[in-house]
Amino acid sequence: MIPAPFAYVRPTTIDEALQAVADGGEDVKIMAGGQSLIPVMRLRLAAPETVVDLGRVTELRGVRDDGDAIVIGAMTTHHDVLVDPLVAQHAPLIAEATETVADRQVRARGTFGGALAHADPAGDLPAVALALDAEFVVAGPGGARRTVPAADFFVDYLTTALGEGELLVEVRIPKLAGQWGMHYEKFTRVAQAWPIVAVAAVVRRENGAIAEARIGLTNMGPTPLRASAAEAALAGAAATPDGIAAAARSAAEGTSPSSDLNAQADYRQHLAQVLTRRAVTAAAGL
């Protein structure tokens, strides 16, 4: 299908991009890889007046080591994330989840920052960012920068803390110290689909017990969520099947999933428990 008419701007620097966004007024839309935006424009679910295409802003691409964190440029493609050695070393959870995003073609164009800024509750990466306590570096009008913790970034359905005229520049993933294991457990009906529910688990083991667990839930509400009750139950729990299973029973506490063709809310809550148990078990190396 053909989208409604729109103006198109293709800046080459962050400053130009911010200016283009400012010039675009209220009905401006920032395009990263376009893998979510273009389909909704073609379906005419979205009809922005201006599209600012970040495809040529090279300074937004790439992964770098920043001491206590790795920093992923917002325009780094899923493919580039997947093959990056820093990601593999410090945040293999990101690579594991990214590998399940759609298909090869989408991963070649879709971007890490675009997926996060889109804030689709069924997207794989928001819950992962949440579980890794990522920090979002945002540039505003005039170039001012601010940093938003993941817990504050996802505000509502398809809505983030990004304000008018702001641009997601990069995402800082803190390096973890100690014995950490990670796993992304995704539940779909067909390959290449968005998850019905998915669980991102990051677990630190100490002396045969689970010292700390961070659990991000995908598609269990309008935003990605942390399974706080399960995290609390896991802290200090025995790293055994029974211990993990008992804690995972509280994984759906505080969630408000939607009902759709794939799953009604009660089934999603059941899945969250099963998948949390499986994700934590795998992350704990059991």
Partner: peptide, 16 residues
């Protein structure tokens, strides 16, 4: 449930 999935903004016919 009859609602389409909300992925990428809810692509079901109803909204279009």
């Amino acid at each position: 449930a009859t609602a389409g999935t909300n992925a990428y903004g809810g692509a079901q016919t109803e909204t279009t």
